[in-house]
Write a protein that binds this DNA or RNA. Structure first.
Lengths: 137, 137
DNA sequence: AATTAATACTACCTTGAAGTAGTAATTAAG
DNA sequence: CTTAATTACTACTTCAAGGTAGTATTAATT
């Protein structure tokens, strides 16, 4: 049980960009090297982040990326949704279709509290709350 | 973020077997049909569950499977560990090596409480606490 | 002893995520 | 205008999880 590589990368990219916002513009090569993410894979993720409107790209020489949305308005949940990695509300943890109060799997009740806590955490963790001193990148 | 198919199947299998413990012996064909798990894939999982000592197999005609361990002594955590799907204590949620109090990623603190709650839930949910009336299988 | 119904084993195929390669498009600098 | 440095696009390859096929082994029934 873990986040996908893609989600992990995206969160790290955006958090790092937020940390460097003075620079205003950061390019794929720098991100790839600093975050140790394969260059070609990173650019693919960047394009997705552009398409979904979190960042904008500046093409050509001296180009790069900068935020489009306020970093206080981008949550981990938003990022996970971009890569279809979020915890969907009615998704059954045992994979038996959909669970709810009246139609539930054997783990449903036990899972419920943890799920809500996780969802809340993902929703309330916006990028601006993550930039901090001394964290690993 | 979800459990692997294999883990989901294994939990469902063991929970269903516990539910039917009066029968004492249940075979792969029945499990496959009742739980709608591909037969060949199910038998592969069963063999793993035998190897790890949760159940024993009886080969030959009239064969099948029954529990070896007490169902109160098999937790979801144990099952997840069998298929390498558990939440490892120091595994970084962002995939940057290992996290702990002194060396942490940007999400570490937010993740900590949820992680502990999840681990606790997985550890405390033994199979006997899951058998219940009217649950989906 | 033969048949039948069951699990175990080995090897393969499929699918989706992860990662790579090459080229086109864009734009600042010289 | 040319060059260099950048992102975007298209297509491919790799890897691990999920799933399938065939055969060997086991043991009760007849």
């Amino acid at each position: 049980m873990k986040l996908s590589n893609t989600s992990q990368y995206a969160i790290r990219i955006l958090t790092y960009m937020a940390d460097k916002q003075d620079t205003q513009r950061i390019n794929a090569k720098d991100l790839s090297q600093t975050l140790d993410i394969p260059y070609k894979f990173l650019t693919k993720i960047m394009t997705d982040l552009v398409k979904v409107g979190f960042i904008v790209s500046i093409r050509g020489r001296e180009g790069g990326y900068r935020f489009e949305k306020e970093i206080s308005d981008i949550s981990i949940e938003d990022i996970l949704k971009t890569f279809n990695d979020e915890i969907k509300d009615e998704a059954c943890i045992l994979g038996i279709g959909y669970c709810n109060n009246t139609c539930k799997c054997a783990l449903h009740d036990q899972w419920l509290d943890s799920k809500i806590a996780l969802q809340k955490m993902f929703k309330e963790s916006s990028i601006d709350t993550l930039v901090g001193e001394g964290n690993k990148v």
